[in-house]
Simulated assay, not measured.
Amino acid sequence: MRIRLERDTLAEAVQWAARSLPTRPSVPILAGLLVRADATGVVLSSFDYETSAKITVQADVADEGEALVSGRLLADICRSLPAKPVDLTADGTHVELVCGSARFTLQTLPVADYPTLPALPEATGTVPSDLFAHAVGQVVVAAGRDELLPVFTGVRVEIEGETVSLLATDRYRMALREFTWNPATPQTSAVALVPAKVLSDTARSMAAGEQIILSLASSGAGDGIIGFEGHGGGGDRQTTTRLLDGEFPKVRHIMNTQPVMTIRLNTADTIAAARRVSLVAERNTSLRMLIGEGVVTLEAATGDQAQASEALEAVVEQQSGGDLAVTAAGFNPTYLLDALGAFDTPYVNVAFTAPNKPCQLTGLAEIDGDPITDYRHVIMLMRLPS
């Protein structure tokens, strides 16, 4: 195999294909990155039996062939190369990489032992890549990170015709984002539980192209696989991952609970105030929100050592007559900041259902406008000392 391609093209392609390589592979062969050259270009791919990645780029191919080399080492080398064309040659036992006066020789791994990548299922539909990346980014903040509870580390993808719903929860917060897309058939209906980390990495790394093709295997034909495909200036990218097993908790009904009181806040001002006040919050203690007439005060403390408070203008609305149903609420500071940071609207609406019960955040284009419900974020409140 003998190929030549631009340094930036190679570095970007290797980096993308190697991003999902396991840090501690179960077998050494899985640390390899497969480089295959033919008349159509160069294909770089990786696979760890769970997630696969494949990218195709244009190159000058003098001799066709394939080679398997250490993916992380190749990625490190490509990042360090000077901005000159790269010549890559494989002779069976070694790969030689030459860029300007820089020369590297890498030992190859046995290609015959490398597992076959799964094929992409049939296309289910397409979605603009920027919309998909934004929607996924809003939802994954609520996904769990405890690998001992794998069902909470996933994002539930629900497809019903032209509507896609993304739902995630770690039991203490929930996020739901709904958007329209272009299904392959109007009657498309499917559900999948996708690992949140893979979904997030994929959405971000494919944002350069105009759209992403989503492919979900139907039952009985490669069941348990979801694939994504994107096309852009950096090459044609494909990735697949196995779906998570287990039943996702039934939490959608919490999103529909009617509030007894709402407060409307400036998003940026609230984020800035919460960051400042939470600096003195002790581990596992709450950031308190005190609610008054036209004002909200954020408070936190570390015993007697440090205290902080900051007042914010707010529009406080009682949904049913009488005194304020909620006068104080306790938030996990990280959860509150994660939720606020997921909104791209200038204002946010915080809806309370009852003291010490979950509250729901939605975006507002204007302080007196209607809540934008395509993205909803629920936070379980922390119990405050009486």
Rank of each mutant, 00 (worst) to 15 (best):
R4A: 14
R4G: 04
A11G: 07
A11M: 05
V14F: 09
W16G: 03
W16T: 06
A18R: 10
R19W: 02
P25N: 11
V27D: 06
L30I: 05
V35M: 14
A39G: 02
V42N: 08
V43K: 11
V43L: 03
L44E: 04
F47I: 09
D48L: 07
T51N: 08
Q58S: 14
E64P: 05
G65T: 10
S70P: 01
R72L: 12
D76H: 02
C78I: 03
R79D: 10
R79Y: 01
S80E: 00
L81G: 02
K84T: 01
P85G: 05
D87A: 09
D87Y: 00
T89I: 15
A90Y: 02
H94V: 09
C99P: 07
S101D: 11
F104H: 08
F104M: 00
T105W: 03
T105M: 11
A112M: 00
T116I: 00
P121S: 15
T126N: 12
A133I: 00
A135R: 02
G137P: 00
G137V: 04
G137A: 07
P150G: 04
T153A: 06
G154F: 12
R156H: 12
I159C: 08
L166K: 09
A168M: 04
R171I: 06
L176P: 00
F179Y: 10
P195W: 10
A196L: 06
K197E: 13
S200Q: 11
M206W: 07
A207K: 12
G209K: 01
S219F: 03
G224K: 10
F228K: 07
E229D: 01
H231Y: 13
G234W: 15
D236P: 13
Q238P: 01
L244A: 08
G246K: 14
R252N: 09
H253F: 06
M255G: 08
N256G: 10
T257S: 06
T262D: 11
T267L: 14
T267I: 10
A268F: 03
A272P: 00
A272C: 00
A272F: 06
L279C: 00
A281N: 10
L287I: 02
M289F: 12
I291P: 11
V295T: 14
A306F: 14
A311H: 05
Q319R: 14
S320P: 00
S320F: 10
A328E: 15
P333W: 10
Y335G: 15
L336R: 06
L337N: 11
L337D: 11
L340I: 03
Y347M: 05
V350P: 00
K357S: 15
P358H: 01
C359H: 01
T362K: 03
G363Q: 00
L364D: 07
S386I: 03
